[in-house]
Design a protein around this nucleic acid. Structure first.
Length: 578
RNA sequence: CGGGGCGUAGCGCAGUUUGGUUAGCGCGCAGCGUUCGGGACGCUGAGGUCGGAGGUUCAAAUCCUCUCGCCCCGACCA
């Protein structure tokens, strides 16, 4: 629990509720946090947390701490300020690119504000671990991270400075790492559950963190930035960035089936038809009967990408396949310079350009592809009879309706907020930085690592996305800033005021966390604020309830109110809360 | 970085097209009074470098140039 008091008077609380929702806010969580006076923006993606939000954050942190400690994690704290040198050592300065906040000190030494701490912890562990006897080891911190996001967004959803719990694991071998990894997944599930959140685990791409296996924890929400594909039948679920699927067969008829006989290539005029849609409808064939050509610049080099016309290129997969740091669509000049004709570009007879193909181009026969001259396409193009590629790998974006790779049932899509991400790093960092241990046989081996992150503020925002109504936040009790919102009406009535004070004192004494609305506001204002601020239990006291010697009690998430006798009320409240 | 939008009081906005007195409105804020179970009412009052710099003009929130910042949509991530 937060170390600060268990109680607060609303008249003294720093942070005021707003009547109107600030215009810049788009997501519900952002709007409510702002309207409730819980956060304040200082710059794009940079926020202050006011007392109420901080308390919720601290509660989340404490739940995380307990679960990390429960699986043997030891808390420590590492520096935000890190030498850039260290990032060069692992080449992650390139992987993070512009996302790294860099600065220099008075001696012109280059420093970064840490976006994550693999390098720092590896260096630290290297100095402290020599033997297999020191392993396994789980170290974590809750620390502010800095990432110069291209586009901060959605209030607390995507910010440039944020609190994160990051745990790093160190094991002797693959098997031990797997055990640790599973243990951490279990701990994560418990964390979200304890925070009152519904979460799902999905397979994920590991991005700039590196490593081979990776999972994300998602809170399902319309406003989520991530698209998840999950099987309608089995438990397969993955981020689109990673998701693999069985593509629908090529178009029926038109020789598109894989059994179709390969016909001789022939030129066909397609005046002014550039896009797949235009070409396919002009020729009266399904999009899956065409071959789409897309050009990328991978670290500056033009790459030709071929995929079946009805599919989309998955840039994350492509980036991984190419092993490049920066990937973007190529510019027109770059395309022209490579000898390609946009709109009618073709892999046919192409040379001097790196070519990547998606296996979908091998599924059908007799596709229509560009002829690499204006207004012209080629019919009956077949792989590998007519062209080949340098790299044939899955680079297609999985779509709803595709088949599940495991069981064949159709895949579905939903959106989610990524509230946690775990990675098997393996020996990536330990090898580059020389973090080794001596095994039983006295042989030096690289330590196998894993890393496990949770964005605290994002988790808070996700909770609000999941739990709110048109009037405000509905905090899950475990992360609510206070448990009880004590709301006397007509405080100029002396009896009400006196009873409210004594009830406030009693609830505090009983160990409940109470937010006491002692303001001389009208009932409408107070009740609306109570809904907005969203404490789980509202206790109203008024001349009306006093007549019967009771208070009115209501759970924030429910409609029904109940009159509870003043006598022994705290016990009743406790029962409702826990 | 590409595309779109916006900067006027703590918040929400009008005024800018067509330059022209002391720059308005609602909410909030301060004081007094009346109210008191779902954002009450009256009276009085405080609060503004019109994002910034430069320019045009007798005169600039308004026109021109530059610049800074913020939001949204796309490429990145907890």
């Amino acid at each position: 629990m937060p170390k600060k008091g268990r109680e607060m008077r609303l008249s003294k609380l720093f942070g005021k509720t707003l009547r109107q929702t600030p215009a810049e806010a788009e997501n519900v969580s952002h709007q409510l946090l702002l309207k409730a006076g819980m956060i304040h923006q200082l710059a794009a993606g940079v926020y202050s947390y006011l007392p109420l939000a901080l308390r919720a954050l601290q509660k989340i942190e404490n739940i995380i701490r307990e679960e990390m400690d429960a699986v043997g994690g030891q808390e420590l704290q590492m520096p935000v300020l890190q030498p850039l040198e260290m990032w060069r050592e692992t080449e992650r300065d390139l992987a993070f690119g512009k996302g790294l906040f860099t600065l220099s000190d008075r001696r012109e030494r280059a420093l970064v504000l840490g976006p994550t701490h693999e390098e720092v912890i590896t260096e630290l562990v290297k100095r402290n671990v020599q033997s297999y006897r020191d392993l396994p080891l789980l170290l974590y911190q809750i620390q502010t991270k800095f990432r110069d996001e291209p586009r901060p967004r959605g209030g607390l959803m995507r910010v440039r400075e944020f609190g994160m719990k990051d745990l790093y694991s160190f094991d002797t071998d693959e098997e031990a790492l797997n055990i640790t990894y599973q243990k951490m997944i279990g701990a994560y599930k418990r964390i979200y559950e304890r925070c009152g959140l519904d979460s799902v685990v999905v397979e994920a791409d590991s991005g700039a963190i590196g490593g081979k296996e990776s999972h994300e924890f998602m809170v399902i929400a319309e406003s989520g930035e991530d698209v998840i594909l999950n099987c309608s039948k089995c438990d397969y679920a993955a981020n689109v960035e990673k998701a693999e699927s069985v593509k629908p067969r090529g178009g029926e008829g038109g020789g598109g089936s894989e059994k179709g006989e390969m016909l001789p290539m022939e030129e066909v005029a397609t005046p002014g038809k550039i896009t797949i849609k235009e070409v396919s409808s002009f020729l009266g064939i399904p999009e899956s009967q065409t071959l789409k050509a897309v050009f990328y610049a991978a670290d500056g080099e033009v790459v030709f990408v071929a995929i079946r016309g009805d599919l989309e290129v998955n840039e994350v997969k492509l980036k991984n396949a190419l092993g490049c740091h920066e990937l973007r669509l190529a510019q027109e000049e770059e395309v022209a310079k490579a000898g390609l004709v946009a709109g009618s570009a073709s892999p046919l007879g192409l040379s001097g350009v790196k070519q990547v193909g998606d296996p979908s181009i091998t599924l059908g026969a007799n596709l229509v592809a560009g002829a690499n001259k204006p207004d012209t396409h080629m019919r009956n193009v077949n792989y590998p009879r007519d062209f080949t590629v340098d790299l044939l790998v899955d680079i297609a974006t999985a779509q709803a309706g595709d088949g599940c790779l495991r069981c064949g049932a159709p895949l579905l899509t939903t959106r989610g907020i990524e509230v946690g991400h775990v990675f098997k790093l393996g020996s990536f960092f330990s090898e580059r930085m020389g973090a080794t241990f001596l095994n039983r046989d006295g042989v030096a081996r690289p330590i196998l690592m894993g890393c496990y992150g949770i964005g605290i503020g994002r988790l808070l925002a996700a909770a609000i996305e999941q739990y709110h109504d048109e009037n405000g936040i509905i905090w899950p009790t475990p992360i609510a800033p206070y448990q009880v919102h004590l709301c006397p009406l007509s405080t100029d009535n002396e009896e009400v005021a006196a009873r409210a004070e004594s009830l406030y004192a009693e609830l505090k004494r009983e160990g409940l966390e109470v937010l006491f609305d002692d303001r001389a506001e009208s009932p409408g204002v107070k009740l609306n604020d109570a809904d907005l601020l969203g404490m789980p239990l509202r206790v109203v006291l008024s001349p009306r309830t006093l007549k019967t010697g009771s208070v009115e009690v209501k759970m924030r998430g429910e409609k029904e109110v109940a009159l509870v006798p003043m006598k022994g009320v705290s016990g009743k409240l406790r029962a409702m809360l826990f």
